[in-house]
Amino acid sequence: MIWTAGFRTGVISPYEQVKLSEPRSFADHTVRQILHMAGGGGRLRVRLTNRYGRTPLTIAAASVATEHGSATLTFGGSDEHTIPPGEESLADPTDLPIAPAPTSS
Rank of each mutant, 00 (worst) to 15 (best):
S78W: 00
L57P: 00
L48W: 06
T94H: 05
A38E: 15
E80C: 05
S63I: 01
S25M: 06
Q33D: 01
D92Y: 01
T9F: 07
S63T: 06
R45V: 00
P100C: 00
M1C: 08
I83T: 09
A99D: 12
M37S: 09
T72W: 02
E88P: 01
G76A: 02
F7E: 08
I2N: 04
L73P: 00
L73H: 14
P100R: 01
L57R: 06
R8G: 10
D28Q: 11
T66F: 07
D28N: 10
L20A: 02
E88R: 09
H81R: 02
F75L: 01
G10F: 14
P56T: 00
K19Y: 00
P93T: 03
T4D: 10
R45E: 00
I2Y: 06
R54G: 11
E67Q: 07
I98H: 08
P97E: 11
T103P: 04
I98W: 09
L48M: 14
A38L: 05
T74G: 09
W3V: 06
P102G: 15
G76K: 00
D95V: 13
P100G: 09
F26T: 05
I12D: 11
E16A: 11
L96R: 14
G86D: 00
P14L: 04
L57C: 03
H36Y: 08
G40F: 12
L73V: 12
A5D: 12
R47Q: 13
N50F: 04
T82E: 14
I98Y: 06
M37N: 08
T55S: 13
H29S: 11
D79F: 02
A5V: 06
S78F: 02
I12M: 14
E22T: 09
P97K: 08
I2Q: 13
A71N: 02
P23R: 01
L73N: 03
T82V: 01
M1E: 15
V18H: 09
L96W: 10
G69L: 05
M37W: 13
T66I: 04
L57M: 11
E22S: 10
A101F: 13
P93S: 03
S70K: 03
V18I: 07
G77F: 03
W3R: 13
V18F: 08
A65E: 11
L57Y: 07
T9D: 14
D95T: 12
G69Y: 05
A60C: 04
R47S: 09
M1W: 09
S21R: 10
I83M: 03
P23F: 11
P100Y: 01
P84R: 05
M37V: 08
L35R: 05
P84S: 12
E87K: 07
A5G: 04
A71F: 02
A99S: 11
G10R: 14
L57H: 03
S13K: 02
G86V: 09
L90G: 00
P97N: 10
A65I: 03
D28V: 06
E16C: 02
D92M: 00
P14K: 02
L35A: 01
S25K: 07
A65W: 04
I98C: 08
G6M: 12
I59K: 01
T4G: 06
G41Y: 12
A62M: 05
S104K: 09
